[in-house]
Structures are given as C-alpha cells and as structure tokens.
C-alpha cells in the first residue's frame, strides 16, 4: 500500500477534525463531519485492500467495520463535545464498541473485562467526579457550557501532532511484512492450548467424559496426562476406564479450552510476577487515594476565595494543602 495515499487520507481526516474542533456554524460542522468520515472511510478502504472476497468472511468483516466506525465516531464526539458529561457518555460508547470488536477478534474474556472494569467502574468514577466538580452555569450564559469547555486550545497544533503520530503509526502498520508463518504460529498456539488443557485435569476429564462416558481418570503414572497431538490438531490422550483398562481417547479440536480458561492459565503460569505486581499497583493506588482523600483543613469562604486567587488578600494564610 502506498504510504502517500494513506497520508493524504490522514490529512483529509485531520482537516475534518480540525474544523470540528473549532465550533463554527452548523453547516461547517456537518461538512467537516462529512470530510472526516470520508477520510476515515478512505483509510479503512486502504486497510481493507487485502480483502479476499473468495474467503467469504463478509459478514464478520462488515460487523467489524461497523463497530470500528462507531468507535471512532464516538471518540470524535468525546473530544469535541462541549459538555463534559456527554464526553464521558460517549466514551462509554467507545468502550462498548471496542468490546464488540474484541469479541469479533476472539478475545471474549477481555471484552467483558473491559466493559465491567472500564465502563462499569472507571467511567462511573469519572462521572461522579464530573458531577462533583461541575460549575453551574451562571445567569449570563444560560445553559451553555463554560468557556473552557467550549473553546479548544490551539487545535491546529494538536491536530498536527495527531496527524504526525497517526501517519507514522499507519506507515508502520502498513509497511510490508512477511506473513509466511501463519502455519507455524497456528500449530504452536494449538499445541500450547492443548498443553494448557493438560494442565487443567478437571476440565480435561470433563472433556474426555464428553467423548467417552466411561473415562475415569486421565492421569498418567506421574500425575500428568499423557497427550499426543495429531496432525489434524486433535489430541489423543491416554485414559483409564472405570474398569481400569487403559485406552486412548481422541479429543477433537473443538475440545480446546475457551478464551477465559486460556487467559487465566496464561496469567497464572506464564505471568505470575506481573500478576502480583498488578496487585501491588492497585494497592498503591488505593493508598494514594486514601492519602488524597484525607480530611482537608476547613477553610472559611473568604479564605478559600483568597486562596483561589479571586478575593482580597486580607491575610496571607497558607492554605489547606495537605
């Protein structure tokens, strides 16, 4: 893919975004939205050049593209909406469409984790704080948003920076790379999945029983199942029947563990330290939040105004900063 076309598409989208950031008349705004959309569509089209119609994956791809469009549009609204609460709400929409994309990318656990943690916890916190720190509109401006929410700061340089980043990242993404190792990666990942299953004896037993109800135990002499992976990606394990006779059961590929099991397995077996550290990070955050939320010295109205820089400096009192 020619990078130059990509840069052009980025430029068109950037111009559209710039015009959206500077609130002018509604005509400009809709025109800008159209331009931005056009740019985005162009980019997506460029990305989808490698689409092979013969494979027949049109429907999932269509769904994917729809989620992508929703995600990007919501992100644009996040950054251009003058009222902060709406920004948070649009962000929730971004998260949800992102989760949909994750599901289509076979990352089900992460999709739901995203929705629960992000949309359910983090964004709710943001909403709380927004409402806490909201300034009520005064008589002069009515129900309009406050000035510092309406007017963007130097959108041109911001958009330019964004354009540079996206252009470079896009060029990196779409630079030619070899794709000759899909077979090997597939085999490796299936092998790893089977070994993950082998490390979960209970699940393995359940799967084996699903194939052959007479299976009593799947453990080998040293306590681990003996598994052989066949070329067609199924696995043959040595089981013991209820009557004690050893047989072999072939598990089809559909018996592979599903996404949450695999993610959990990976977390525990391959990233235990990171898991612990994540816990530590959360502990630190909690402690920090406790420290931050300590009770402040109560300031009188007058002193608080002085401290905020808005009143007469009758007596310079050091404020109530912790």
């Amino acid at each position: 893919m020619v990078p130059f076309l990509f840069y052009a598409a980025c430029a068109v989208a950037s111009v559209g975004l710039l015009l959206l950031l500077k609130p002018r008349s509604g005509v400009t705004r809709s025109g800008a939205a159209l331009a931005g959309l056009a740019g985005l569509a162009w980019m997506l089209a460029l990305a989808a050049e490698t689409f092979d119609a013969a494979r027949g994956d049109l429907l999932p791809l269509g769904g994917f593209v729809l989620c992508a469009l929703i995600s990007v549009a919501s992100a644009v609204r996040v950054i251009t909406h003058p009222r902060p609460v709406f920004c948070a709400l649009y962000f929730i929409l971004v998260v949800v469409s992102g989760a949909a994309m994750y599901v289509l990318l076979s990352a089900e656990f992460v999709a739901f984790a995203l929705v629960i943690v992000y949309a359910g916890a983090i964004l709710i916190t943001y909403l709380f704080v927004l409402m806490l720190a909201q300034q009520s509109p005064d008589e002069n401006h009515g129900a309009e948003a406050v000035g510092y929410d309406r007017i963007a700061r130097e959108p041109a340089s911001a958009v330019f920076a964004g354009f540079v980043i996206v252009a470079v990242l896009g060029a990196a993404i779409f630079s030619p790379r070899s794709t000759t190792k899909s077979e090997a990666t597939q085999t490796a990942s299936i092998r790893e999945a089977w070994s993950d299953l082998g490390a979960m004896p209970g699940l393995l037993l359940a799967r084996a029983k699903g194939i052959d109800p007479l299976v009593a135990s799947v453990q080998g002499p040293d306590g681990r199942p003996i598994m052989v992976i066949l070329p067609d990606h199924s696995a043959r394990i040595a089981v013991t029947h209820t009557d004690g006779s050893p047989t072999l059961v072939t598990l089809p590929p559909s018996a592979l563990p599903d996404n949450p099991s695999r993610v959990g397995m990976a977390l525990v077996t391959r990233f235990p330290v990171s898991l612990e550290l994540a816990g530590v990070i959360l502990l630190m955050a909690m402690l920090g939040a406790v420290v931050l939320a300590r009770r402040q010295t109560e300031l009188a109205d007058e002193q608080r105004r002085v401290h905020a820089g808005r009143g007469r400096a009758s007596e310079p009192t050091p404020g109530g900063a912790p």
Binding site: A47, T50, F51, P60, V72, M101, E154, A161, I165, G170
Partner: peptide, 26 residues
C-alpha cells in the same frame, strides 16, 4: 483474515491519535 487485523490496527492508531488530539486541545 488480514483486513480485519489491518482495520483493527488502524482503528487503534486512530483512537490513539484522537486521544492525543483531545488531550492537547481540551
């Protein structure tokens, strides 16, 4: 399928860029 991955990467870049623009302009 490659278009899926390409589009996903592209969207990721766009989201990152939009986040940057928003950070710089809000």
């Amino acid at each position: 399928s490659p278009p899926e991955i390409s589009i996903a990467m592209l969207v990721s870049a766009v989201l990152f860029g939009l986040g940057l623009v928003g950070f710089l302009s809000r």
